[in-house]
Amino acid sequence: MARIKRFFQDVYKNKTWLLMVLPGVVWFLLFSYLPMFGTVIAFKNFQFHPDGFFASVINSEWVGFENFEFLFSTDDAFIITRNTILYNLVFIILGLILAVATAIILNEITNKKMAKVYQTGMLFPHFLSWVIVSYFVFTFLSVDRGMLNNIFQWFGMEKVSWYSEPEYWPFILVFMSMWKGIGYGSIVYLAAIVGIDRNYYEAAMIDGASKWQQIRHITIPMITPLIVILTILNIGKIFNSDFGLFYQVPLDSGSLYPVTNVIDTYVYRGLMTMGEVSMSTAAGLYQSVVGFILVILTNYIVTRINKDYALF
């Protein structure tokens, strides 16, 4: 009883804070938590029932882990898992380095007007959807009309049929992902860098610290919490991938599958003929659970190193 009483006292004492989180909590409950009950269909053979979704869920038979099997059953399963993880690792590491570097440079260069222009320019790709980006890539890589092959011919080199030669694609995909994401990523870091108290830098300059030392000893440590959080979050999505990047940019070309097939595209292609709600839910759940475990692990490690940086 006493504990319950104390709980309510706590609630009362924190009422302003609770009021602040209330709108968000309501939203999360409605749009995120409530729909999570739907996940049970990952373990069922989903059959429709005339009385609506709930009746359908209740009346469908349990099948255990059968809906997950297609993710593990073939040799392709290994390839897609490998591709997904490797690409994401590269995206996380390279994306982090490039975004932080760009943000620091934007903050440091002397001509602020130009910095603004660059920043505007770099955010541009973020406005374009992958479909449009894929058109653009196509204008470069098209076999007979592409800009690259035209240049190659100009120099008397062999034409490359880009869309059927897998060896180039890991680079193309990484490049495109960076190209589209860096402007956006650097903004977050820039906002944090600009937010750093100027006094730190002044003190450092009085001590004769070089720019490089300032960056190393002030800027980077000050944005480390943000870096850690964003990285932990990205690790949580390591089994997910940007469908547009892996499906639309390579134009769904079969010969590129060994390097472009990732879990999301595999699920999409596998279920196209059957439209199985249960199996796609199962795939989503698999991605979430792995991501969740990884995040908890990383967060635990971060906690051991420095408690302040932990996500929760």
Binding site: F28, L30, F31, S32, Y33, L34, P35, M36, F37, G38, T39, I41, F53, L233, G236, K237, V277, S280, T281, G284, L285, S288, G291, F292, V295
Partner: peptide
């Protein structure tokens, strides 16, 4: 909520 979602159909129903 960043990691787990119930999928499209329950979301649509809500």
């Amino acid at each position: 909520t960043m990691l787990f979602n119930g999928g499209l159909v329950p979301f649509y129903i809500v």
